[in-house]
Design a protein around this nucleic acid. Structure first.
Lengths: 83, 83
DNA sequence: CGTGTAAGGAATTCTGACACG
DNA sequence: CGTGTAAGGAATTCTGACACG
């Protein structure tokens, strides 16, 4: 389910995290919710999974910069250039 | 996906129907969204599908009472008593 | 019956900032 | 760095009612 349908409040319930934390992950460019015409964020179930993974990694000691690096290195290894 | 995560605005976008129509289906007991602590409705993807089916049937000439009857007869045929 | 609408209020979300560390 | 919070405003949703038919 990749459709962006959830408000931040629902994501908080699903993840147990605060709005602040979720918005911070976005600020660090780790998640990319859509926006309604009025400017409200909309998240997908994939986003929720990603958020949970981010939180898990952070509890293991990674910071957001490192997580960003990890994501990008994964992307590179999967890109056509590397095949 | 049976989790109730969507606000009525998202359901409107997904179905192309108005808030009024969607709330009316609930009034006629054809759908059963959950509520947040504050009283806001939350719908699942299953609800969206059901809403689309209801709208389809209504365009075919059924009224909400008949649709309610249809649902109940389906339930009865599937109930243990009828096996 | 099914749906549009204006009305007023309440719940939800937004941003930018200050704070701590 | 990551997160809590109070502040003020804006978007979203709620209910009950009137309207048409």
């Amino acid at each position: 389910m990749e459709s962006k349908v959830m408000s931040i409040g629902v994501v908080c319930e699903l993840t147990g995290l605060s709005e602040r934390q979720i918005r911070y992950y976005e600020e660090r460019k780790l998640i990319f919710p859509e926006r309604t015409k009025g400017g409200n964020r909309r998240y997908s179930f994939e986003d929720v999974t990603t958020i949970q993974e981010i939180h898990q990694k952070m509890q293991e000691g990674f910071n957001t910069y490192e997580l960003k690096q990890l994501k990008q290195s994964k992307k590179q290894r999967c890109s056509p250039i590397f095949r």
